[in-house]
Write a protein that binds this DNA or RNA. Sequence first.
DNA 1: TGGGGAATT
DNA 2: AATTCCC
Length: 428
Amino acid sequence: MTMIGLVDCNSFYVSCERVFQPRLRGLPVGVMSNNDGCVIALSTELKALGIKMGTPAFELQHLVRQGRIHLLSSNYELYGDMSQRVQSVLEEFAPAVEPYSIDEMFVRFDGFTHEQLLEHARQLHHKVRQFTGIPVCVGVAPTRTLAKLANRAAKKISAYQGVCVLQHDSRETQVLLKKIELGDVWGVGRRLVERLTVMGIKSAWDLAQANPKEIRRRFSVTLERTALELRGVPCIEMNDFDEARQRIMTSRSFGKLTDNLDEIREAIRQHGQRGAEKLRRQNGLAKAVLVFLKTNPFRQDLHQYSPSLVLELPRPTADSREILHAAGHALQRIYRKGYLYQKGGVMLLDLVDASRQQLSLLDTPQSDADRQRSAKLMNTMDELNKRMGRGTVSLGRPTPGAAWHLRCANLTQRCSTRWDELPLVQAR
DNA sequence: TGGGGAATT
DNA sequence: AATTCCC
């Protein structure tokens, strides 16, 4: 029988930072979201101060100034590299590794006894720590949902010492299902907890006991699958990590509330270009572009307006110029004076694979030549940006210091991916 | 007061 | 198109 392991890195972003900055060990450390918005990774010491995941960073500035806590900007280049290192170690010790997110990986095991699985899981737990410096917890069970649950247990219940292997239908599984809160189950969010509680379903065990057909009727197929998985029936597969996206979004808060159309246009152009780059990387073409703006929903004292508009492109394209052209039109049409906008972005929709794209019957030799010139130009831009660094060439020059640039006031060095940011070690 | 994604209804 | 859920 196939068993599924879930390896989950503990406070991943904080752990990455600590690998290269040992002085942060034992201190209350948090890593902030993109744009230094809120805290998304917390060391145990920071959690012990009662600070919760998602707390806006500005609410914690007084503690930072007093030196009581440390907040870092997120350094995705570092975390991405560390994630690959963790994956490499897993691949050495386990046959099939499926990345699920930057800090979680599923591992499949076939034909192991319970004792062998336990041994294997403990080995993964130890080797990842030893070779990457990142502490992880390992949960193993017959289904992904149960593996997630086993992982929660490994993390929360100290007796497990970071490793929990659940056998099908075992007494141990039953005990854990009863102990684990509903909201800790993979796929069960806040709203579902509310609705299920009313029905008397209060624990993971209750959900596992419920009639799946009933669950499907009153809720959804996804929750039915979750219920079945809790019983040990596998029905959730992994969509492959590097499958092409179905849509591509690029957006960001402007950094300050603004009604300045020039500023907004520049931000939207940036997002359009970044989106087009992502699109070309997956060898895709977009048939439509969506542009959205939004005011700050937390400022109920201000007028609210969150428009969006989809424009179909004249032809499926990955050409930044065509995408920016459409995005510019969309923006003109949704922008209204008199509102303070907080955020805006571009989504590329109806994506198709470039290599599978049928040439239209209306295509003339002329437009075919156009296409090739376009591809060549875009390719050249992408190559330059890849070789010389992002932003080396772009359509239109971004205003230096504009408010919509990524805010990252407390960024650490990308010490594992950039030669010029290698850590310095001083001998005494 | 993040920036993405996907699925369902 | 809106809601829900995930990390």
